[in-house]
Computed example of a mutant assay.
Amino acid sequence: MNVGIGLPIAEPETLLDWARRADAGPFRSLGLLDRLVWDNPEPLVTLAALAGATTRVRVQTEVLLAPLREPALLAKQAATLDRMSGGRFTLGLGVGGREDEFTVVGGDVRRRGKRLDEQMALLRRIWSGEPYSDEIGPIGPAPVKGGPEVLFGAFAPPALERVARWGDGFLCAAPLSFAGSLFDSVRGFWSQAGRAGEPRMVAQVNVALGPESTVDEARSAILAYYGFGGDYAATVAAGMLTTPAAIREAIQGFGDLGADEVMLYCWSPDVHQLDRIAEIL
């Protein structure tokens, strides 16, 4: 079982320290969320900096809101980051759903799923080295091994089915009690599509480990970030794990479901959480 770290967004200038400490520790990946209308660092730019400051740990978007982006440029950015990190980049994708962010880019929130499918067809075409069209040539650079690993974050069946059509695996942000059914659905769609092997399964759990100030800081960050969802924000905050025993239990539980990795998402910028988490793994 691999364990990764979801990075906090409150203090972007501290993330190089987070990355270097994680690179020297027992962690496999560093994940960073995406949002447009919010006070967070842009993930592709940030992960490029973190990849340059590390030598071993993987970097991944968790998740990048692809429908907000122009696909040809996204393909070039992802391939560049994949090449410059030595193949350590994972492109985690989702559709989003906040109408204000689609308004900013002139997009249509109602067709975000269809747009993502269209984008994936183009991304795969570009990464394969094929011409962009009959009139326009290829867009480089070529990524490592045909393209970065692509994971999809999803809940609804049509979105879960997208893992089998376009992806390499699934990012599960659901609690342990709900994750099993989502894993089963993804595996079912994978088998129906005739895909070889198994989809990569990555779970996400919100954590805060440390003094009361660290826990309070993390809880406040979650409540603010998910504030648009009303009661949902309180539910997410209440589900945050704050003890070594709870974190160990969650890692074990997701392992029993067949997860390949668990991302422990840290909402507080207290970097000493990395040392505390490393001690309990």
Rank of each mutant, 00 (worst) to 15 (best):
I126P: 07
V186R: 01
L176A: 11
F152R: 00
L74C: 10
E70C: 05
P244R: 01
R69A: 04
A154V: 09
S177G: 12
V271K: 01
E62R: 06
A19G: 12
S213M: 01
R110C: 04
D168E: 07
Q119S: 11
A53Q: 07
A75D: 06
G31M: 04
G86P: 08
V105P: 09
I277F: 00
G258L: 01
F155C: 00
K145R: 15
E42Y: 07
L182S: 08
F183M: 02
I139K: 03
A159R: 04
I222V: 15
G92D: 04
D260L: 00
L30Y: 11
P131N: 09
A48H: 04
L123M: 07
C172E: 01
P131R: 01
A156D: 11
A179V: 11
A250I: 08
S85P: 05
A51K: 02
D23I: 12
G113R: 01
I136H: 03
R187F: 00
K114C: 00
A245N: 03
Q119D: 13
D216S: 14
G96Y: 01
S181D: 15
V207T: 05
R165N: 12
A121M: 07
A203C: 10
M84E: 07
D39W: 02
L209S: 08
T243D: 10
E62V: 14
E279N: 06
G230M: 02
P12D: 10
P43N: 08
I126D: 07
D231H: 13
E135S: 14
R276F: 11
G147M: 06
A224W: 02
L281M: 15
Y232D: 07
G86T: 10
C172P: 03
G52H: 10
V37T: 13
E13L: 12
P8F: 01
A208W: 05
R58M: 08
R98T: 07
V186A: 02
T54S: 13
R276K: 09
A193R: 06
S181C: 02
F170T: 05
